[in-house]
C-alpha cells in the first residue's frame, strides 16, 4: 500500500513541477529585457547610470535577436531587443510596437600579412562573390580592379561567417542580396543562411578569433569588435561610388539621410544609403514592446528608462563606439509611444 503511495507521490511531484508556470519577475523597480548581443554593452552602461539615479534596475539577457523576438512574443520579458527589424505585418500580428535605440555598422575584416587597415577597397558585388566562393584567391584579377597600385598576396581566401543566428548576419546578407543578384537567388537574406562556403564562428568574437587565426581569412563583425581588436578592415564602395572607411562619422552620415518619418513602424534598413560619406552596411538596433501593456506601471517604467537614455545616454553610447540617433528621430519615437496603452486604453507614457 505504501509502495502505491510512493508511486503516487512521485507522479504528483512530476505534475507539480510541470504545472509550475513562470510568473515572471514582477518585482517593483526591475525591468526585464532580452535580445540582441550587439547593443548589450551600451544597455548595460545606461542601466547602471539609470539605477544610480532612480533606483530602477534593468535585467537584460543578451540571448540574440531571435531569442529576444521569441521572448517578447511569449511575454516573459518587458521588452525585446533585435538587430533584425520586424516588418509592419509581423508587428501587427504579434501586437508589438518597435522603435530604434542606437546605430552601428557591420565591417568586413581580414587577415592579410603586410596590409594595413583601410588599404583594401571592396565593392558589394566583390564581397558577394568572395562569400559565394567564386573569388578564391586574394590576387584574383577581379579584386585587382578596385585595388590597382597594390599587390594583394597570393593567399587562398578563407571565408568566415557566423555559425549562430544573428542580426549582424541579417544585415550583411541583406546588403549582399541588394548588391548581387546571384547572392539573392542562391542564398538569400536571413539571420541564419545556408552559406556556400567557409567556416562558422560563434558570435562576433568567434568570427574575430577565426579571422585572426588564419592568414588570408575574411569575416564580418560589428564595428565595436573590429575597433577594439584592431583588425584590418576594408573600405567599401557606397551608393555614391566613393570608397569609405567604417567609423562613427560615416555611420551617422548613413543614418542622417534616412527617411524615418515615412517608415511605418520604424522598419528601415540603413543599407546602401545615399551620401558621399555614408557607410553602406549600417543598421539600427530595435526595441520591441507590446502595444497593449498588461501592467501600465511597468510599461511606463520601461518607456521612462528609454526616454532617459535618449536624453542623457548619447555620451556613453559614443564612448562605446555606437552612434546615437539624430534628435528629430528621437522626437518621432516619443510620438510613436502614444500607441502603447495600458489595460484601460490610456497611453502609458506621459
Amino acid at each position: 500500500m505504501l509502495k502505491k503511495l510512493g508511486a503516487a507521490l512521485g507522479a504528483a511531484l512530476i505534475a507539480g513541477v510541470a504545472t509550475l508556470s513562470a510568473t515572471g519577475a514582477y518585482a517593483a523597480g526591475v525591468i526585464s529585457g532580452a535580445g540582441a548581443t550587439f547593443p548589450q554593452p551600451v544597455y548595460a552602461k545606461w542601466a547602471e547610470e539609470y539605477k544610480a539615479k532612480t533606483g530602477i534596475a534593468l535585467n537584460y539577457q543578451a540571448i540574440g535577436s531571435g531569442g529576444g523576438i521569441k521572448q517578447i512574443q511569449a511575454k516573459t520579458v518587458d521588452f525585446g531587443a533585435s538587430d533584425k527589424p520586424l516588418k509592419p505585418d509581423d508587428l501587427a500580428a504579434s501586437g508589438l510596437a518597435m522603435f530604434p535605440t542606437v546605430i552601428g555598422g557591420v565591417v568586413p575584416v581580414m587577415n592579410l600579412p603586410g596590409i594595413r587597415p583601410g588599404q583594401v577597397k571592396l565593392t558589394g558585388a566583390q564581397l558577394a562573390d568572395i562569400y559565394r566562393g567564386v573569388i578564391k584567391k586574394w590576387n584574383d584579377p577581379l579584386l585587382a580592379r578596385t585595388n590597382a597600385g597594390m599587390t594583394l598576396p597570393n593567399l587562398p581566401i578563407t571565408v568566415v561567417h557566423r555559425s549562430d543566428g544573428s542580426g549582424t548576419t541579417f544585415l550583411f546578407t541583406t546588403y549582399l542580396s541588394m548588391k548581387a543578384q546571384h547572392w539573392a537567388s542562391e542564398v538569400g537574406a536571413n539571420d541564419s543562411v545556408s552559406w556556400p562556403t567557409g567556416q562558422g564562428g560563434k558570435g562576433n568574437d568567434g568570427v574575430a578569433a577565426f579571422v585572426k587565426l588564419t592568414p588570408g581569412a575574411i569575416g564580418y563583425v560589428e564595428y565595436a569588435y573590429a575597433k577594439q581588436n584592431a583588425m584590418t578592415y576594408a573600405l567599401m564602395q557606397n551608393k555614391d561610388g566613393k570608397f569609405v572607411a567604417p567609423d562613427a562619422k560615416n555611420f551617422s552620415a548613413a543614418a542622417a539621410n534616412a527617411k524615418w518619418q515615412s517608415a511605418p513602424g520604424f522598419y528601415l534598413l540603413l543599407l546602401d544609403q545615399p551620401g558621399a560619406d555614408a557607410w553602406p552596411i549600417t543598421g539600427a538596433t530595435f526595441i520591441l514592446m507590446h502595444t497593449k501593456q498588461a501592467d501600465a506601471a511597468k510599461g511606463r517604467e520601461v518607456l521612462d528608462f528609454f526616454d532617459w537614455c535618449y536624453k542623457n545616454g548619447d555620451g556613453v553610447a559614443g564612448q562605446l563606439d555606437y552612434v546615437p540617433l539624430p534628435g528629430p528621430v528621437k522626437e518621432l519615437i516619443r510620438k510613436s509611444w502614444g500607441k502603447i496603452v495600458g489595460p484601460d486604453g490610456k497611453r502609458v507614457h506621459a
Binding site: L2, K3, L5, G6, A7, L9, G10, A11, L13, I14
Partner: peptide
C-alpha cells in the same frame, strides 16, 4: 516509508 520514497524516486525518474 523508506521503501516508498525509493519507489517515488524511481517513478519520478522514469516519468
Amino acid at each position: 516509508m523508506f521503501e516508498a520514497l525509493c519507489f517515488a524516486a524511481a517513478t519520478f525518474l522514469l516519468v
